[in-house]
């Protein structure tokens, strides 16, 4: 199973981490990927300067807003969503 972990530490929280988390959860449902992708919160991933930090399968991405979250999801997951 692939994972998306959204940092909810102090710095990322202040930069809107919950909005990013909600976006990923919505996209996961929209694409019916509940069984294939695990979306979770995480503590500080030590990339505070580039927040919101999101780890996809262990690789850290900087996802400052919802649009970036959507673009990242499309790039990394959308091919799998259409069987």
């Amino acid at each position: 199973m692939r994972t998306i972990e959204v940092c909810l530490g102090s710095s990322c929280f202040l930069k809107g981490a919950y909005a990013v988390l909600d976006t990923f959860v919505a996209l996961q449902r929209q694409h019916g990927l509940e069984d294939d992708v695990r979306v979770a919160g995480a503590f500080c991933q030590e990339h505070c300067r580039e927040g919101v930090s999101v780890a996809v399968d262990g690789t850290i991405y900087s996802v400052p807003d919802k649009d970036t979250a959507r673009a990242l999801f499309t790039r990394l997951f959308s091919t799998e969503s259409t069987p």
Binding site: S10, F13, A17
Partner: peptide, 27 residues
């Protein structure tokens, strides 16, 4: 990370065995 606590105005708590409460810091 414990996302079962629905509190959106601060970061979520966490869980470590043997520790009674784990939270984010300053906020």
């Amino acid at each position: 990370v414990d996302l079962s606590v629905d509190a959106r105005d601060m970061p979520p708590p966490g869980k470590i065995a043997g520790i009674d409460l784990v939270t984010e810091g300053v906020i």
